[in-house]
Design a binder for these strands. Sequence first.
DNA 1: GATGTTACATACAATCCTGTATGTATGTAA
DNA 2: TTACATACATACAGGATTGTATGTAACATC
Lengths: 222, 222
Amino acid sequence: MVRRTKDEALETRNRILDAAERVFGANGVSRTSLEDVAKAAGVTRGAIYWHFKDKSDLFTAMVNRVTLPMEGMVARSSEEAAADPLASLKAAAVFALKRTATDPQCQRVFDVVTHKCEYLDEMAGVKRRISSVEKGCLDRAEAALRNAVKRGQLPSGVNARLAAIGLDAMLYGLISKWLADPDYFALARNAGAVVDIYLEGLRSNSRRTGRARKRPKARHKR
Amino acid sequence: MVRRTKDEALETRNRILDAAERVFGANGVSRTSLEDVAKAAGVTRGAIYWHFKDKSDLFTAMVNRVTLPMEGMVARSSEEAAADPLASLKAAAVFALKRTATDPQCQRVFDVVTHKCEYLDEMAGVKRRISSVEKGCLDRAEAALRNAVKRGQLPSGVNARLAAIGLDAMLYGLISKWLADPDYFALARNAGAVVDIYLEGLRSNSRRTGRARKRPKARHKR
DNA sequence: GATGTTACATACAATCCTGTATGTATGTAA
DNA sequence: TTACATACATACAGGATTGTATGTAACATC
């Protein structure tokens, strides 16, 4: 077509980004040409090169358009965190899981990020953002657990940092695996339960590391 | 060079695979040409096309040459599983983590698989193998937990399937994240402790889902 | 209503990579 | 020692993408 008004141009831009989500998700980032994206968006490569510098710029814009699963987790709930840190942490974790399970755009984009693209220098921007989000989650979880210990919600023996890492890894694993195969388990239905398994488990984790061993083996060294 | 003896040929083949591990890891699979691999291996593309059909065949061979982190987990310890299922499961999980932390080849290849390649149809063979390993781990973990309940090692309220999924996801998350950034945490040193946090936590997880709630909220529905 | 600018479409050249075909020297079997 | 197969190296052709250059029609502004 031809010259559009400013709003229409923005709409084309979004159509391109929508198409990128679909095509990248279907064929992977590196295996799809800008011609593919253009065709899927009903435009030509000219339109793409007008709105974006190149493919990695398009990719970055596509990712930055959405909020990642864990991203909402760190933003909300630092208000009520003080009152009931454990419940607040649980709510945040469940929120991230449920968002993953229910938001199709979030699914598409995060699936591309985790499984359909190669994690290298050219996507440095996206990398930075993601690892910043991850670090935020980790720190928030650690702080919550530390507060929970302080308030007596958790026994004093709990290693807050390590417990936070375990939780963080579990959430990432659940999301990543579910995206790769939604039949992995019923994410939406079981989100609360899995998080509970972990967090409730911490409640009794008094001994530093394995008091309830059968035979007290030598301390793990190496 | 020229015609080599059979052993020398096999050695070139392995040199090519070694080079592939390095170059794929450095630049990602799709961004490296066979010329790059050949140069890194000190041969020409002719040698690669002699030993492998194409790039995806090379990639498959590279992955199939090693045993993945979780792979050793399912193989061993179905013998002593009956005696002490929980300890056996823990040993298997820690084994997988420590192997990841200490085996450089395992690191390189699994890092490529999880972060440096795009998970699509063309690597159907690798995909099948990996998801088969993952399914094996999950089933093994579930069986172990079920047995642990039967033997009184775990309370009867534990949902074995869900607990296994949580553990599986945590292990995957730990490995995946540590590979992406080895500064994430000290994997080798803390492997036993993280697994303990999860498994020991299950010991007290009697209620089906959250008995110890502050206020008994409505059953999560949707 | 002439003009510059925007938002694209189209055309083109250059590059890269792949696959295959061919060359060739060596091992290996007869 | 002839003859064939092996283990590569080299050469070549073709397609696929990329980035840019250029065209162009509508919009905005005066």
